[in-house]
């Protein structure tokens, strides 16, 4: 690794429109920089040597946190992990996302790194995708041809791969509100210390329906597959049923089977089982008498 960067041209667009025009002009020769916590390392390692950088930090229009009971949460991609983790709106409505944002890197990295940059990196062991896929988050992308909205679980196509084309920008992250009787949490386990990479992460949402059955459940798993995945077979076991301890454990075992860890597979599958079981067991009592959703 080198300590310094090689020269590049530097642009500071004054609007999202201008940023997209620059991307269209330079294509693969350009890279977008937001917090820089990931890109700068790749450039020091000479894995990336872009001819020009397009700096987004000045675009206040991409920095917002808004909640509406019907539309849900709208996050600007330039929000840092620290801003999301301490946002009263996020903590009130989607605490599981605040929890996950507080697990990213170190405090300094959380002060610098942005949610948009994190999602665009699409690293398999990141903490924000598991809760976001469980919350069925969508990304709004803007390019020269216009806008499109892509669900997060279709945005990532593999380790460090996304459907984002070189002239597109993530301009918004949308999280629909949880239905009444819905609650969610994020559980994870790291290698050694809190700042280490996550070995397994589970973002879980449970919704209690009439008759005290599990009307809906969504299990997002991270660090145990090429990208964050939904454990849909485990979800199907629980949906429509009362989550008795035996059934929850069976679903957790099914989730572990759905995981495809690359290294330390048996251990990571075991972690998935423990985390999913713990999450659902803790969430279910919380969903009783919930007037609204509690992420």
């Amino acid at each position: 690794m080198y300590r310094l960067l090689t020269p590049f041209d530097y642009f500071e667009p004054q609007s999202v429109r201008e940023a997209v025009e620059l991307l269209a002009r330079f294509g693969h020769r350009a890279r977008v920089i937001a917090g820089g916590t990931d890109l700068v390392i790749s450039m020091k390692k000479r894995q990336l040597t872009p001819e020009c950088l397009i700096a987004l930090a000045g675009l206040e229009e991409l920095r917002f946190i808004e909640f509406d009971p019907v539309a849900g949460l709208r996050l600007g991609p330039l929000c840092t992990h620290a801003e999301i983790a301490r946002s009263p709106l996020v903590r009130e409505h989607f605490g599981m996302l605040a929890t996950a944002c507080n697990e990213v890197g170190t405090p300094q990295v959380r002060n610098m790194g942005t949610i948009g940059g994190n999602l665009c990196k699409a690293g398999p062991s990141q903490d924000t995708p598991p809760p976001l896929v469980a919350l069925e988050a969508k990304l709004r992308l803007l390019g020269p041809q216009g806008e499109r909205v892509v669900p997060l679980d279709q945005f990532c196509t593999g380790p460090f791969c996304t459907v984002l084309s070189s002239d597109e920008l993530v301009v918004e992250i949308l999280i629909p509100p949880l239905p009444p009787g819905g609650a969610g949490c994020y559980k994870w386990f790291t290698k050694v210390t809190v700042t280490d990479e996550t070995l397994a992460g589970a973002g879980v949402v449970v919704v209690r329906g009439p008759g005290d059955v599990c009307a809906d459940v969504r299990i997002g798993l991270g660090s145990v597959a090429p990208m964050a995945i939904r454990a849909r077979k485990a979800e199907a076991l629980l949906r429509g049923n009362r989550p008795a301890p035996g059934l929850v454990w069976e679903a957790a075992e099914r989730a572990a089977q759905e995981a495809e860890p690359r290294s330390r597979a048996a251990y990571r599958r075991h972690l998935v089982k423990v985390l999913v079981n713990e999450a659902i067991t803790e969430l279910w009592p919380l969903t009783a008498d919930l007037p609204g959703g509690l992420g």
Partner: peptide, 13 residues
Amino acid sequence: GVPVLACMTLALA
């Protein structure tokens, strides 16, 4: 007032 890492921050930023 916010702690950031000088080795990963572009000076112009």
